[in-house]
Design a protein around this nucleic acid. Structure first.
Lengths: 156, 156
DNA sequence: AGAATTTGGTTGACATATCAACTAAATACT
DNA sequence: AGTATTTAGTTGATATGTCAACCAAATTCT
């Protein structure tokens, strides 16, 4: 099966279609991981990311997650409600600031992460195999810069 | 305003959270460009991408666009119907293969692209300013590799 | 040629994402 | 203290995205 994706058509100025390429890669990655999650679990992509983060960084709040994932707080609110209902996460009102609630991953959630993580990491490994360490570092650096630069919402 | 996004929490193994970071950057970029599109036009992000591609690569078909954008053909079908209804794109059945239809950007669509493109390019320029040419090249190369590697949907 | 498979596109049902309005608590301002 | 502003989170309305079923035309296989 030859790759007739027409990528060659998008040459030209270096940054032309850069965000487009990013979006495209993102779409493919998302489709792939969603696919795996469906096979290996019954949680969705956002659920996975939330659990993964809660497991990795410990207790936190919705608004932190929202900032971190750069994701709508409304959506997050609903997703987290689902996770709490499924007993994967617990939520308690913060004693210091009663507007916010502290989210903590539950043992069941932790177990889920333990089950899925190896497969996700293996996939991650496959994604970057053949790419040199140095190139990967540059990649992540540039990605971080672009991330930082896409902060402003002011009109040009 | 200090950046309390907690990015520092995500250090560790180089590729840990790589797709997560990609998703995050993607979300921010999308939010940003959608915002601009809302200010400067009344078309959505997908409409923009389709018009931009049709303008840049000439006539094509839905399935090509679907492959290129790595986007659901169903959604694309509806979006393109909208573009045709708004007379930004014309569609005619291919004489050779009557399953498919050739999509062509209309003059109105072309004009729209001419109006918006400079602002998009200026934004693009701001995104990458301060990043060296060499680093950008590596970035795009790695991105392409990851894109290619995220092809398989087979279980691990 | 005829059957089986693939491909291009449309549609419906459903899940997810986005935006805006809103409540309540915390902070800042005077 | 008292008002104004900001922040955390929820909710509803609406737009977008995803998946699967489906039709019709093209292609492959025999």
């Amino acid at each position: 099966m030859s790759d007739t994706n027409g990528k060659e058509l998008l040459a030209g100025h270096l940054t032309s279609f850069m965000t487009f390429r990013l979006a495209r890669a993102h779409n493919k990655l998302n489709a792939q991981i969603s696919h795996y999650l469906r096979i290996y679990s019954d949680i969705g992509l956002v659920d996975w990311r939330v659990l993964r983060l809660l497991e990795a960084m410990g207790d936190t709040t919705m608004s932190q997650l929202s900032r971190l994932l750069q994701m709508d707080k409304g959506q997050l609110s609903r997703k987290i409600r689902g996770l709490v209902e499924r007993k994967l996460v617990t939520s308690r009102v913060d004693q210091v600031d009663s507007r916010q609630q502290i989210l903590r991953i539950d043992e069941a959630g932790r177990q889920l992460v333990r089950d899925i993580l190896p497969k996700v990491q293996e996939r991650q490994r496959l994604l970057v195999e053949g790419i040199s360490q140095a190139d990967l570092e540059v990649f992540l650096e540039v990605l971080a810069k672009i991330d930082a630069a896409s902060e402003t919402r002011d009109p040009l």
